[in-house]
Design a protein around this nucleic acid. Structure first.
Lengths: 337, 337
DNA sequence: TTGTATGCGTTATCAA
DNA sequence: TTGATAACGCATACAA
């Protein structure tokens, strides 16, 4: 059942059928009604591929996720899809593995599938000097790219960021101001966002004039196993056993804060009097521990709305800001004073 | 840059270019090399829409998620996308809201976009008598549907299930066998999967000849808020205050088990001696609590692989089983004897 | 307001 | 092995 069948059965040309289909006002009410009736009767559905070929768009945005299937990524996917659908766009989804080549080919594939735009979820898509980001610049020549939480300065690439630096500084200052000076920063990795967090953390010490001990900056390797919490908790115990003194932990991800809470309990430290914990992302898991832990709300729903707005704006030919930065908010719970 | 440009620059017809593109063996090595060289040089990428129009497929599977953005759904999305990509298919993603009409239109939209197949994630897509599932039967007339964890008996609909009934029965029996008889079943809702779990739970009592108290079957409304755990914990305290006696909790979702663990701590109940907890799905959050809690592993990666296998098999015209059922496994942790 | 004719970029059939 | 040409189903410029 195609446009020719409908035109035949309703006794008009395919042009008229097409007009009805596209709500073109230059159709008489009578003709329109007739055509619609035939369409209804035959259960006609326009062929999306043909339309795509003609219009050179299928109203589709590619969503690229890194290999971390964490709450940040999954929530972002949810918010982005919802926001884009509201704006008339569909989503194509792809996860990438840990390898650099996987990120490259994922972007290439999206382009070859002729998506209208690509949204990169998380700063893991921004490579360090070792590899560089030429592939992103290249892809952006044909397809607009919005980077959620990753900063890139390329033509046709738009960045929507949360001010991780300031948020981390604020969180660290809060801990410093409430009497904790030996603050361990447990970091996920050295991706761009992680580095911004580390900088904010460090500068908080500087601002307070408190000497900073580089030993307090620790990396926790995340393997996505069921024993992650135990492993990280053990890691913390080991640090302590090795003589590192710390009275608070600020983590780059909520998942890591879970382990920090457990560590405190194992060490019989009273939270928040003797020991404080602050996580990052303010995800649902903040309320999974007892005590519930404080965290930084990165306003993911707002960021995602903005990503969708910018993407649709660009596609509609409007001038859009190349970088948008939102403030985060420190949400205090039982794990801090 | 299209196939005509390539044909012109390489001095062959578009038919030959197309053959090279599709690895058709009826091309001389010399011609192939020449054409490939031109393609490489020009950075030619075939137009996906035109190919879709010609072949009547864009190798795309629609993934439909319900409104619960829980770990089950998000993990399923990850495993499905990965498995399908390995098999040469791309994924289009759509979330639905709580309304019935939203599920209807999501399915219709997928069909109208001409996806090759649709995967329904979770049994929430199976409606009760109130609405019925005619829309699914209808959609399946044009598009093969695979239902993950939802049972449906329609032509062209394939079901991949975990034996929730047996898993629930096993979990309940384990609790009964370790001395707990007042087992509260905290259920997410009366969707199909939830009902199977309830039946297994009930039949465990029957099998042991222990009278079953219907009061022990309780529903927890899930609003996806940050205060969910607190709310459910309060709900449990209220039940207790109202005189309901229970010495164990078996939940239909891991998220609910978090609240059960907290309840036990608040009540100063010693886990697992005085109080046992078993969750459902064996997600990462099982290790977020202290003590970590036991849960039912529904083998989601395996189920998703099977969904992908069946979908691709159907699309390739092979005969595929209409229903596949896997066994779950009870994973014991610190919350049970 | 309606119809005719053409283009979109492939794949595939049939001849050569 | 290669090429000419007809689909595929829609949108649209232009003509009527």
């Amino acid at each position: 059942m195609n446009i020719y069948d409908v035109s035949e059965r309703s006794g008009v040309s395919i042009a008229t059928v097409s007009r009805v289909l596209n709500n073109n006002p230059h159709v008489s009410a009578k003709t329109r009604a007739k055509v619609l009736a035939v369409m209804e009767e035959c259960g006609y559905v326009p062929n999306a591929f043909a339309r795509g070929l003609g219009l050179n768009t299928m109203k589709t945005i590619g969503l690229l996720c890194s290999f971390n299937v964490d709450s940040y990524t999954t929530q972002a996917v949810y918010h982005l899809e919802t926001a884009l659908r509201e704006r008339g766009y569909y989503c194509q989804l792809s996860f990438t593995s840990m390898e650099y080549t996987s990120r490259i080919s994922a972007i290439e594939q999206m382009c070859s599938r002729h998506v209208d735009g690509i949204i990169l979820i998380g700063s893991t898509f921004v490579e360090d000097e070792k590899y560089g980001n030429e592939h992103i610049r290249q892809a952006a020549r044909s397809t607009p790219i919005v980077s959620l939480n990753g900063s890139l300065d390329f033509e046709n690439v738009y960045c929507v960021l949360c001010d991780d630096y300031r948020a981390s500084k604020d969180a660290t200052l809060h801990l410093l101001n409430t009497g904790f000076t030996r603050i361990l920063h447990l970091s996920h990795g050295d991706n761009q966002s992680g580095l911004r967090k580390q900088a904010g953390y460090r500068d908080a010490f500087k601002e307070k004039g408190i000497p900073f001990d580089p030993e307090l900056l620790q990396h926790a390797e995340i393997e996505n196993s069921l024993h992650k919490t135990t492993a990280i908790c053990d890691f913390l115990c080991q640090l302590r056993a090795n003589g590192l003194v710390f009275d608070a932990i600020f983590t780059s991800e909520d998942e890591l804060a879970i382990a920090a809470i457990r560590y405190a309990r194992q060490m019989n430290l009273s939270i928040p009097k003797d020991f404080s914990v602050i996580g990052y992302n303010n995800s649902t898991i903040c309320s999974y521990t007892d005590p519930e832990f404080s965290s930084i709300d990165v306003r993911l729903p707002v960021l995602c709305q903005q990503c969708a707005d910018i993407m649709t704006g660009v596609l509609e030919g409007r001038e859009m800001p190349r970088t948008t930065i939102f403030n985060a908010e420190l949400v205090l719970r039982e794990s801090t004073m």
